[in-house]
Design a protein around this nucleic acid. Structure first.
Lengths: 218, 218
DNA sequence: CCAAAAGTGTTGAAATTACACCCATGG
DNA sequence: CCATGGGTGTAATTTCAACACTTTTGG
């Protein structure tokens, strides 16, 4: 989200109320910004260095009338942020909703990040790194793809997440070996080339794979 | 740590002061309980469910004189715990030091846990699960083993952490392939069988492997 | 010489990589 | 008919799993 009156961006976030689960508060932030529920949301790390404060930001907020002046000192404290990453199908939320501190909110490509407050860039780095590792243990794609999707679409998703190209044939083999895809015997039509097969996730196997994880290593 | 006047145990922990890095506070807890510094300490998850409170515990603390009665309410709040696990060579700290709330402090085998407060058992579970996954990405053993150690000792460490038996020959091959071990051309003597080779870690490679991680998966 | 545990090597299976051809579709 | 991208197969390589015999040492 681009902060008001500043050429600096920030990750969406919020405070954890005393009587709420932290996980639920994360869900709420996601829901407020995107309107989406029931999506993949994963805690990956907490950030609690003393350098995580930007006193200037607090005074800006007062100036903008976003917070009450009596709260300025409180806002100048160091926060501990518990990082969560969500996987959201971009096209489902073209325009995420900004909060009171920001002008607007939009999707930003990970390899072309704007200037970010405090340590938010390193938070994104950690999230991305964690996600890449998790791909070795868990399937991904449900609610990032339409109900029916093609193998190349799934591959494109992986390539986006991993930021690297994968071999078509090997990707297909590996993915099918996971046993979480169902061939619907349908094809995607209207493309200017051979019609690709439409798959859907075998949700039972998909979620049991998320729960148990793919074997790997020791 | 066994809590005073109770047959219930708790993980060591503490509060994060406002002017301290969370990581440093974790280090401090470790240092206070074990006297050790410079050891592997890794944040793995934060726990923030609203059920994480035990009002009874707060009143017990008042009764025991550990905290001031005026603080009782404050202690009844829900805490968010940021979990860290450390890898400590057990023999270096035979008797960890209890804090004011506990009678004594000791090492407990993971498969024979006593009754633990609130969600501490699930915290241990999560830590163990995380550790097992990390073994696929990182070498482990430095400051868990003496400077010189044998392959079977390293294997025993892995088997302890993974809670499973590994094949001697395959373990050796895999470990040597990581390229983080140096054959010192010495043997451990005084054992009633063939003298095992003493290795030490190639620290430069060891730490670069921790930093970059072993390849795995995608 | 014997018990105990360490060192070592091989083989088959499985997974991974690299790579090339044919096929269906829309224009 | 052609451009585009999807489907498929295979061979070479690497990794992994399973497994047994020989060696060294102290007692």
């Amino acid at each position: 989200m681009k902060l008001k009156n500043k050429d600096v961006w920030a990750l969406p976030g919020g405070f954890v109320r005393k009587d709420k689960d932290v996980d639920d508060e994360a869900k709420a932030v996601l829901q407020e910004r995107t309107g989406l529920t029931d999506i993949f949301l994963h805690q990956f790390h907490s950030f609690g260095s003393v350098s995580r404060q930007d006193p200037k930001h607090a005074s800006d907020l007062v100036e903008m009338g976003v917070i009450d002046p009596t709260m300025e000192e409180w806002f100048k404290q160091r926060y501990v942020s518990i990082g969560y990453y969500a996987l959201v199908e971009y096209s489902k939320v073209k325009l995420p909703i900004p909060d009171a501190t920001s002008d607007y909110c939009s999707w930003v490509p990970i390899n072309d990040l704007p200037k970010l407050v405090i340590d938010h860039e390193s938070i994104i780095g950690k999230a991305h790194q964690t996600l890449k590792k998790e791909l070795n243990y868990q399937p991904i794609g449900f609610n990032l793809l339409p109900e029916l999707f093609t193998m190349p679409e799934l591959q494109a998703l992986y390539e986006t997440l991993l930021q690297s190209k994968l071999d078509r044939r090997n990707f297909r083999r590996k993915m099918l070996a996971y046993g979480i895809l169902i061939d619907t015997n349908q094809k995607r039509e209207g493309v200017g080339h051979k019609a690709p097969i439409l798959y859907r996730f075998d949700l039972e196997k998909y979620f049991s794979a998320i729960k148990d994880g793919f074997s790997s290593g020791w």
